[in-house]
Nucleic acid binder design. Structure first.
Lengths: 346, 346
DNA sequence: TGACGAAATTGGAACGTTCCAATTATGAAA
DNA sequence: TTTCATAATTGGAACGTTCCAATTTCGTCA
């Protein structure tokens, strides 16, 4: 059971060449003769050699590792984001460190430090709630490429890739207004986040644009989860004049809102219109299918990874702020189908 | 912008000691005088030193990295499993490589190879569908600790941590039988997997135990996803004598079954009893709350990580097969509440 | 046959750490 | 003082690779 590591030198001996030649073969150099290449490869197979990337990195001072730190992997939006990143990162021959911070700044600090110690060549970060510029400063100053996703941090001198939350929310609310809704709520999410802020502004601006009144009482925050959606809609239904429709902070909240509605014997998409945000995979198959603002988390992860790899390859870091376009996907939960039916009957 | 890496030698110069002393400080040795320790730490702060774990690993031949490869991160069961692993791994000062195989053996082979090259000290694997002993052989032979989770592979000489699928399924079906159901279906999942096999056997054994007939037509496979659940239940409702209850392959399928039921104007938990498997977080908050066999994916991830770390620490690999206990969590979707109400009225 | 450029191969230094054996400093006992 | 044990510090080798400059081999042409 004594596992002696087999090294490039062992291969060299076995193949009757020098370690330098073996190294050349390993990196697929065209300098080496076809016959020797074959000999070396045979030796590699025979001895069961496994490349030591750590040693190589040490010499080359560049790793094939990128880090991704997300604030809540339990949320399927972020899980999908991670698979998007994973897909492109794997194809590029990289491997990813994945860490979950659970919204804890301290954890985030630790994992980022740990990743730097491991020599990641780049980092994709969906920052924990409350992350400040100062938290990222040491990382950014070190010169390693960083791209922020989902949540931007004002003043941080790094690339970011966020979706157009304002435009998406406006589109959703416009749609609700067109369907004739007069009292539209904005449900869920933590009010102290940039994403909430942007979506809520879009909601408000759409109302203003239509000359409709805005009311603070119709904006109800909650945890951005399914459970949060349940409590938010309960609160909304306590109001003196209840809303008839809602734009939700995200899809998880929207599902919770549907749950809460059903608990009150109200059928989402019939008695009450609900629109989500993000378009997670389940949105399509849920009943009723969720009308939502499509953000395509996997695609976002892919774009983020591509941006990061580009920066790693380029060597110099030229911050770039991308806002991903977004589109309203009309399905059943906003009652559009019902409206259409009614129109057809009329 | 020219970032010169600061090394242990730079620190040594700045603090007026030797690199060996700095190294001692770094690893918290008690051999070093308090005063010099302070000097060194000050220098570390001043120069913004970051430890190079790669170099250390090279010398020590052991890394603080573990790998986790899952077959489908998009499925929230596995996402939660990953966060469970992450939590304990982080606390132990390790960092995790996370790779998603998307059920593709080839991908799995690649990522496992890549992780070995990066020198992971251990690996947690939820194998892709169709993984065979031979696929794992090179990994296992290398002597690095491996623990299989969720899906076991017969004949593989490694530790495994799977839940008691057979007992869980039996408990669920017994419950359905007690509630008076006569025609109970088993819906969803790929029939060629060990997990399907175990759960299906549990389902069948419970029927046999009760002296009830078993019928092939009531066992309907599908993709283990929400969409798969929809199609499975549609197929079930085409049957001549429809089932009145179903045990589903997993929670995702169960949600899909609820969706499909509603699409036919049937209320899950009232008109039809459904039980899931896994107990993902949404099971509790869904409406109706899902009765399910609780597997606690996060806890499973934690246990797997603990087992792996134990083996890494022990040095020698003593394969250990753990089957995690499982319990039926009765909520609303199986119609228990309704039954009780009926009993109370009677 | 010699010379020459191109192709192929090579030894050694370097990457940043840890470990070992050896050295030096410190303080207490003689 | 000297002596000794103990505490603290240290230089150098080693880990497995890559890179560079240098060398050897080869085929071709004069």
């Amino acid at each position: 059971m004594v596992k002696e590591r087999v090294t490039v030198i062992d291969i060299a001996h076995a193949a009757g060449v020098s370690k330098s030649t073996v190294s050349l073969v390993l990196q697929g150099s065209s300098l080496v003769n076809e016959a020797t290449r074959a000999k070396v490869n045979a030796a590699i197979r025979d001895l069961g050699y496994v490349y030591n990337r750590g040693a190589a990195n040490l010499r080359q001072a560049k790793s094939k590792i990128i880090g991704i730190v997300v604030n809540d992997l339990t949320n399927s939006f972020f899980a999908e984001l991670a698979v998007g990143v994973d897909a492109v990162v794997q194809s590029a021959g990289f491997v990813q460190f994945l860490a979950n911070t659970g919204e804890k700044i301290e954890r985030q600090r630790e994992v980022v430090a740990s990743m730097r110690e491991h020599g990641v060549s780049g980092l994709i970060v969906s920052p924990a709630r409350g992350t400040e510029v100062a938290d990222l400063a040491p990382l950014v100053d070190s010169g390693i490429p960083v791209v922020l996703v989902v949540r931007d941090i004002a003043g941080a001198d790094v690339s970011s890739l966020i979706s157009d939350n304002h435009a998406g929310a406006m589109a959703a609310v416009r749609h609700l207004i067109e369907r004739g809704h007069q009292r539209i709520a904005f449900l869920g999410g933590f009010p102290d986040t940039a994403v909430f802020e942007a979506r809520m502004r879009g909601y408000r601006d759409a109302l203003i644009e239509a000359g409709m009144p805005t009311s603070e009482s119709l904006i109800i925050g909650s945890a951005p989860s399914r459970a949060g959606g349940v409590t938010a809609v309960e609160q909304a239904m306590m109001l003196a004049d209840r809303p008839t429709a809602a734009l939700c902070f995200n899809d998880a909240v929207a599902f919770g809102v549907c749950d809460g509605l059903r608990a009150r014997r109200l059928e989402p998409g019939v008695d009450f219109a609900v629109i989500g945000f993000d378009d997670v995979i389940e949105a399509k198959t849920a009943v009723p299918a969720l009308t939502t603002v499509s953000v395509d988390p996997q695609g976002m992860g892919q774009r983020a990874a591509e941006l990061l790899l580009k920066q790693i390859k380029a060597g110099k870091v030229e911050p770039e702020a991308i806002v991903g376009s977004v589109r309203l996907v009309v399905r059943q939960s906003c009652g559009a189908a019902v409206e259409r039916k009614r129109e057809a009957l009329a």
